[in-house]
Computed example of a mutant assay.
Amino acid sequence: MDVLVQGAGPTAPFLGARDVFEIDHDLDKPVHVHVRENPDERTWAGHHDDHHVLNISRKAATSAMARELALHEYSHMRRHEEGHPSHTLSMDEVLFLALPGRQVEQRVLTQCYQLANHAKDIYADDITLSVGPTDKLAAFLESELAAAVSDRPSPNRDGHRITAGADTEMTAVNAAFALALLERHDAISPTSRLYDLAHAADEDTPHVSVDEFRDRFASFADDPDQSTYRRELVDLVRAYVDSQPSTNGPAAD
């Protein structure tokens, strides 16, 4: 497994992740790591005919989570190479099957793509958590959820809610995903603070149930074929859209 780090950044996290990853897995194509200057650059993987690309900010590349982030992206690359349905199924096809004749806000459609990314992450992290430690991921998910919950809208003196940076509905979905992923791998304690944070996220939105979406994420098959995965993702998207009061019912036209 070849890893080439490009840009001014550390190499140790990416080579260390490679050494851990290739104990049980391998990649046929080389990985080009691009360390970006933008501190807000999201870590993500790209796939080309002859190589993969791992894009990561310098901030993330020098963080305590750098090796775990690299392991996560290598896992996505493995799923892509093996043609796993979570990484090959067209989202356009899913939306066509899930929402025939429906009128859906662009905001909600964007959130549907975020749900699909969570589903992809479940199958990537089935690999990640089989080769790497779970404690740092659990701490990371707790930290991310705590930040989102603290950024939630709060009532003003008139009882109306004040807009804040975090979307309460997606925060609830993110909480459901975090719990489902960690429970899937027995990587969370019953006394984890994540449960309290998930409860707070659930109370913040009347439309999205954390328990419902945790159960949906948790029910994803361990090794689905294309048809099974398509059905699971269609059901997930449809359930989320149905939870939105502004998108219920058929299209106006």
Rank of each mutant, 00 (worst) to 15 (best):
L236Y: 07
V35M: 05
L69G: 05
I162R: 14
E82F: 05
Y229C: 01
L179R: 07
E183V: 00
H48T: 06
A70N: 07
S57K: 05
P39Y: 07
S86W: 05
Y123A: 09
A187K: 02
D135C: 03
E203P: 01
A252V: 13
E82I: 10
H25W: 14
D2C: 04
A60N: 07
V104K: 04
P30E: 02
R161Y: 15
T134P: 00
G249Q: 05
K120N: 08
N248T: 12
F21D: 04
L109Y: 08
P206C: 14
A218T: 03
F21E: 06
Q114A: 09
L109S: 02
T43V: 13
A175D: 06
A148T: 09
D28A: 15
G46P: 00
P190A: 04
E142Y: 04
C112D: 11
A17Y: 09
E73S: 02
E105S: 13
H160Q: 15
Q6T: 14
R230C: 03
L197F: 03
I127C: 09
I122H: 11
E68P: 00
D49T: 10
S150K: 12
I127Y: 01
A8W: 08
L15G: 04
D2G: 11
I23H: 13
T62G: 11
E183S: 08
N38V: 08
H76R: 00
S86A: 15
S246H: 12
T228H: 06
Q106N: 11
T171S: 10
R214F: 02
K29W: 01
N248Y: 08
E183Q: 13
D2S: 09
S143G: 15
H80Y: 13
S227R: 14
G83K: 06
H32Y: 12
S90G: 10
E212T: 15
H199M: 11
P85L: 08
D158R: 14
A138T: 10
D196K: 12
A164N: 13
S219N: 08
A166Q: 05
L233W: 00
Q111C: 09
A146F: 07
L95Y: 12
D26R: 14
A61R: 00
I127N: 01
A172T: 07
S209I: 09
K59M: 10
A166G: 10
L97Q: 11
V149F: 10
V237S: 07
A139F: 00
D158P: 03
H34Q: 09
A60W: 04
T43Y: 01
E81D: 14
V3D: 02
R79H: 02
A239C: 06
L181G: 05
R58T: 11
S227D: 12
D19S: 15
H87Q: 14
L99E: 03
N38D: 15
H207R: 10
L89Y: 01
S209A: 12
Q106P: 01
H76A: 03
P13D: 10
D19H: 13
T88F: 02
H72E: 12
A252K: 09
D121V: 00
L137E: 07
D40A: 13
E105A: 15
L137F: 09
R36Y: 07
D223P: 05
M77E: 05
T11K: 13
A139N: 04
